[in-house]
Design a protein around this nucleic acid. Structure first.
Lengths: 251, 251
DNA sequence: TCGAACTATGAACCGAGTTCAAAATCCCAG
DNA sequence: CTGGGATTTTGAACTCGGTTCATAGTTCGA
């Protein structure tokens, strides 16, 4: 069945072509600028062909989101392998996410939009469950880290679901991305370096939840040092060696 | 200038009429179901009249959001007056927000959508700055509480901006609302009582940030007791005395 | 080489947001 | 009271972009 295979491969390739073109367009013209006809045209296909891959514009949006989540998962998957104190590995998730946000600045903006009722409900159930499924490994990676931490005696979950031990991290990150992408809000509240503040808050949360070893949440130098270490040891390839002074990225 | 006044009042009344009708429609048919023509028709006005008040659909959405924020501000404003340990007052913000979310279940869903690039950029600058201005008092109330706490010796901000002492609370709340309104996510991660978990996490965060007096973040009973006290002392009128067993609301 | 099955095309359709010229109403000077 | 200019309301017409589907083109095995 070589023909069948080839057809499927070609179809997948074209789907990726569409996805990339759409992402490019979002990057260029914003979410507002995304138009089905333009995407198809950019790939030298007719509109109808685009609709063979994506049932609707919302479907396309969800698909792009899923495509990006895969890259995010790749980042998450580094953590369980990284041999370090569990607390640092947990914070590593956040650091990885921040690096990810820098590489794909459109992702969280898109994600916020996609999980909006308007887009979500209009997308096909297949795409939706596909997106949820794609993001599942992130949860798995985190679970692994926490299980390790408990096994090593670094953390007592007090009988609570493992997942809860990092849910705050997740929601805080989500919320901070909301703020970062809500135009005008950063200025209104004078948040010059939101991701740095996020790391501080996460560090404090971990303290409050009893993660070991403890670190003073106000010890800026220690946090700085830890973040740098994580970047070097886990995400070196993603961090340009060119001096990027913004602490939000890869300092 | 009695005539001028009357006209302005009538205009304001009609604007509220439109806002309420639109909100009603969102409640009924979801954000997807909101249609300009339907809103106008529901108020027995022509489409054009609606456009005298709101420059676009996005404008209307932002306006509705602002309308709800005013009600939210009313809740925030109770806290600085409430005489209680500062830590409890800070947690009171979260409790108030959760109660608010119960009374206006559409708010956070709407807010998430409104602060999306697609809606935000399409709305008129006037409406946008109006919405931001409306939400400013929330920040003021929080600032007041923290200033009081510092003055009372309950908290050392370590020289950091006052706002940062609760930013984590804000982002965490935002993020949790994102999850609550992202269909499928709660089920995927078995989050049965997201707001209860949120309160736990917030409590832990406050611990980590050094708010006084400390409370064990795993002491469920103590947290329960505190939440109940806040509800009774600050939000009694908003909490139905009818037994609502859902801890997310008014238990 | 042929024709059935499959695929791509893009003009036409459709629906909702938006506009604007005409109609209705309001206000006040005469 | 009344005439007419200013203001407000109306809703049919317009626009624009997502979506469809009859038609044209292509593929593949007999």
């Amino acid at each position: 069945m070589g023909i069948q295979e080839r057809k499927e491969r070609q179809l997948a390739e074209r789907e990726q072509l569409f996805l990339d073109a759409a992402r490019e367009q979002i990057l260029q013209d914003g979410l507002l600028g995304l138009q089905m006809a333009k995407v198809a045209r950019a790939c030298d296909y007719a509109t109808g062909t685009l609709y063979q891959h994506f049932a609707s514009k919302e479907d396309l949006l969800v698909a792009i989101c899923g495509d990006l989540v895969e890259k995010r998962v790749e980042i998450f998957n580094r953590l369980p392998r990284w041999k370090a104190p569990s607390r640092e590995r947990i914070l590593g998730i956040a650091v990885g996410d921040i690096i990810f946000a820098h590489h794909y600045p459109e992702h969280f903006k898109l994600a916020q939009f996609v999980f909006t009722e308007v887009v979500w409900q209009a997308a096909s159930p297949k795409r939706r469950s596909q997106l949820l499924e794609t993001s599942r490994p992130m949860g798995e990676a985190v679970r692994q880290i926490i299980d390790d931490a408990v096994a090593a005696g670094d953390l007592d979950t007090h009988g609570r679901p493992v997942f809860e031990m990092t849910l705050g991290q997740w929601t805080m990150t989500l919320g901070m991305h909301n703020l970062v992408h809500a135009e005008g809000v950063l200025e209104l509240y004078n948040l010059h370096d939101p991701y740095r503040i996020l790391l501080r808050q996460l560090n404090a949360l971990l303290n409050g939840l009893g993660w070991q070893p403890l670190m003073d949440p106000f010890d800026e130098a220690a946090l700085e040092q830890l973040v740098t270490r994580i970047q070097r040891e886990v995400f070196a390839d993603l961090c340009d060696s060119t001096t990027d002074n913004e602490s939000s990225g890869c300092p």
